[in-house]
Nucleic acid binder design. Structure first.
Length: 518
DNA sequence: TCGGTCACGTA
DNA sequence: CGTACGTGACCGAG
């Protein structure tokens, strides 16, 4: 790893006296410019302010590529060369943007695939600054969608937050999630026994009474069910749920499935492979999904609830868990600019005023809101959806516009400025959801960034779409609680400025992740 | 060995 | 209800 992967520090201009205090997202210097936090040996420094060219590139242009060649090309409005089109070194200093130096820029203006190795470290850093300036200029071209713009431009703050998230991902990979290994093994054993396949299969096999069925082959299972008079198009558990009473085999099968899932995906092998020194580690991406959510491997985003007691604070430490309440409908209220919906989203519980306005009970109101956001097509939500259209026309028009864009193959941009690209033959429901899910993801990351920089000796050890898990020295737990609330208020106050929407976090200090809130 | 399908954990 | 992920077992094709 080359130390010169780190660009030079730069200063942010013109809004140092911003009226809102964004904590970690504050303007100021130095701001470290990185080609990519995931390839930068910057970790021990834990810098506060970074600009991650790869992360910002993905905000501006979407897509999958975020290597320096692609980042450079997009910033210069050049076609992105095919991956690793290495070949001959065709360098032309005279045409390079830094005339007089040997820089790894080709005659066509593209960056050489081996630029990081070819370039003088100082030149390489200067190229990073060239890209940073161009990215920032591009971000400033984008209109600010907020009801009340103010402080640093929203899209520039998104760049800071997404950059911080990229760095946070590198830290999450290094730090890992604290695991009580003894408890983890105990919990796995409680679900799957000693792990012997034949033993696990036995209860179901017994009920089959000699019928030769491959439990791990869905079509074989379907045929077996048919022989018992149970005719189902597939054997998914939610479908079989209705047949639990029909035959003892169904119940046994569903129980077996649960154990099989743990045995194959979250069993002893999984612990062996991913837990080292009491920490569960996986690869983290700051914006891998189509809408820009964080992703993680090693099951970090899909830990079964039964295993969560194994996530535990280390001696002298406590966990602080915080999750955003009703974040997606609140995001919809903020980004659509629907005043009526925002009025509901000013309350602790958003669904209560929605129910009152629609003249329905709370569960119905919830279904109506979710159906509107996610484009539900079937079920009993139809009537409620019609009422939503009449009551919150601006929010619904916003969603319809996003869906229509996707349907005709147009890209959409989230509130914070992320481009969500639509493949050929666009999928409407995807974009309808992406403008909400993606916006929620960037609000979450901005919040996480502020929290990260406000922590003393603590660490963020898990990010779960709308939930943060902190591991802090016990005496700092109460300060962390205050930090989480304060950071959300400041972040949302800027991100949703002028919307009237309130964002709320449920925060609890616990020993184990599974411990009750309170 | 590969991609596709089914299935299922989470938000 | 829907959307988004990552993982694993199995299938059939090559």
């Amino acid at each position: 790893m080359r130390a010169d992967c780190v660009g030079l520090a730069t200063g942010d201009r013109s809004w140092t006296a911003a009226p809102c205090d964004l904590g970690a997202l504050e303007a100021g210097r130095p701001r470290w410019v990185l080609w990519s936090a995931s390839s930068t040996p910057l970790l021990p420094l834990r810098p506060r302010r970074v600009w991650d060219l790869a992360a910002v590139h993905k905000v501006l242009y979407g897509g999958r590529r975020d290597d320096p060649v692609a980042v450079w090309a997009a910033a210069h409005e050049l076609p992105v060369p095919a991956h690793h089109a290495g070949g001959l070194m065709l360098l032309d200093a005279a045409l390079s943007p830094l005339e007089g130096y040997l820089v790894p820029v080709r005659v066509d203006g593209s960056l050489h695939p081996d630029a990081a190795e070819l370039a003088d470290p100082v030149r390489w850093a200067e190229l990073a600054l060239v890209v940073q300036a161009r990215q920032e200029a591009a971000l400033r071209q984008l209109p600010d969608p907020r009801a009340d713009p103010g402080g640093p431009p929203l899209r520039v703050v998104t760049a800071w937050a997404e950059s911080a998230a990229a760095l946070l991902c590198a830290e999450l990979e290094a730090d890992g999630l604290p695991i009580d290994v003894r408890e983890a093994n105990r919990l796995v054993e409680a679900v799957i026994g000693n792990g012997d396949r034949a033993v696990r299969d036995a209860p179901v096999v017994q009920l089959l009474r000699g019928d030769d069925v491959d439990l791990r082959n869905p079509s074989s299972v379907r045929d077996a069910l048919l022989r018992l008079g149970i005719d189902v198009p597939d054997t998914r558990s939610w479908r079989l749920e209705a047949y639990r009473q029909a035959h003892p085999l169904v119940d046994a099968l569903l129980t077996w499935r649960k154990a099989e899932r743990v045995a194959t995906t979250y069993g002893f092998g999984w612990l062996e492979q991913n837990v080292r020194g009491g920490r569960l580690r996986g690869d983290w991406s700051a914006a891998d999904g189509g809408a820009g959510r964080m992703t993680a491997t090693a099951g970090l985003h899909s830990l079964p609830a039964e295993l969560r007691p194994a996530v535990a604070a280390e001696p002298g430490h406590l966990l602080v868990r915080a999750d955003l309440g009703q974040v997606e409908p609140r995001v919809l209220a903020a980004v659509s600019g629907d005043r009526g919906f925002a009025l509901a989203a000013a309350e602790d519980d958003l669904y209560t005023p929605v129910a009152a306005t629609l003249g329905v009970d709370r569960p119905t109101a919830k279904i109506a809101v979710l159906a509107a956001m996610y484009g539900q097509t079937s079920g009993a939500a139809g009537q409620a959806l019609k009422q939503m259209e009449q009551t919150y026309p601006t929010a619904l028009a916003f969603l319809r516009a996003a869906e229509e864009a996707g349907r005709v193959g147009n890209d959409v941009r989230t509130h914070g400025g992320r481009l969500v690209r639509v493949g050929t033959g666009g999928v409407g429901r995807f974009t309808r959801n992406a403008v909400v899910q993606g916006a929620a993801a960037e609000l979450f990351k901005a919040w996480a960034a502020v929290v990260r920089n406000g922590l003393g000796d603590g660490q963020i050890v898990l990010c779960l779409h709308d939930e943060l898990l902190l591991h802090v020295p016990a005496e700092q737990a109460q300060a962390a609680v205050a930090l989480l609330h304060g950071a959300l208020e400041r972040t949302a106050g800027h991100w949703a400025r002028g919307s009237g929407v309130r964002f709320v976090a449920d925060v609890a200090v616990v020993h184990r992740w599974s411990d009750a809130k309170g």
